[in-house]
Design a protein around this nucleic acid. Structure first.
Lengths: 151, 151
DNA sequence: GTTGGTGCAAAATGTTTGCACGGGG
DNA sequence: CCCCGTGCAAACATTTTGCACCAAC
């Protein structure tokens, strides 16, 4: 898997997306490329935010297409989503495997933490309860250093 | 104390509710008693489920009253809510202080875990990031022992 | 040419709000 | 008697769905 750069441009390149789609009988469309690219560029985005970003480039893309595409990309394993606060689903590219989200209640900032931080918890839950934790969806609420320091 | 029916958790009795309300200039109403009682009895319930339970006893109670009352009770510190999957907010009585929720992706079951299980994580986040974790809202997704064993 | 994908509009959910009436204090 | 709390309906926000047309292959 040719993974290299991970900022602004296209980490999972179009070739890869095309192949992933074809393998399952789906078609490659500009909309799908744009949505994937938007998710990757945003790092964390709600469907609305993804749609907004996509529409910067292609005005006609409908929000329902974004929803359908996000669902498809998730099925393909190219994006994942978690739930941060209220009901807002947050999508992020799965180029970076699993990570835990830290969400600040006060300023709304989102940080990522390496999964290793929760290994003790995961082990304990497995041992005590036989519970297999899905680390990728774990979201921790609280207050970030900046906000905790202020008040 | 007038605890009746099958609620396992010790209810915040009506006298207490009345006092809590009065102290802030709010009034005691049957609806508020019923909503609090429903939250306690359900252990974990969405607004819909709370409303359904309330309406078993008092048919006329409107869903919007349930929303307003849940908000009020949360303000009083008598109930808390977290977000489990999608956008469904789950309310629970705060008679049991803080606890972590384990949600099974497969069967939807909800378990509670004592906060001590996450102490190492909380310490680590505080130390590494200066992040103050809100343990009460922490929700861990994964598969419970039953479901993990089956597949 | 097929068939799947998209845009559009409407429907389905879930939650909030404005308003007038009735009950709690 | 005052005015908070409620029921009701409508407004809202978000996500899903039905359908006809268009584009990918």
């Amino acid at each position: 898997m040719p993974s290299r750069h991970r900022s602004t441009a296209a980490p999972v390149d179009q070739v890869d997306l095309s192949a992933q789609l074809r393998a399952r009988g789906y078609r490659l469309t500009p909309q799908r490329q744009l949505v994937l690219e938007a998710v990757q560029a945003l790092e964390h985005g709600t469907p609305d935010e993804v749609a907004a970003r996509v529409q910067e480039r292609a005005a006609g893309v409908n929000i329902s297409t974004v929803y359908r595409t996000l669902e498809l990309l998730e099925e393909l394993g190219l994006v994942r989503h978690s739930h941060l606060g209220h009901g807002a689903p947050i999508y992020h590219a799965s180029t970076v495997p699993d990570h835990v989200h830290l969400v600040c209640r006060q300023c709304g900032s989102i940080q990522e933490v390496e999964p290793g931080a929760v290994d003790p918890l995961v082990s304990k839950l497995r041992h005590d309860r036989g519970f297999e934790t899905d680390v990728g969806h774990l979201t921790v609420f609280g207050r970030c250093a900046d906000c905790a320091g202020e008040s």
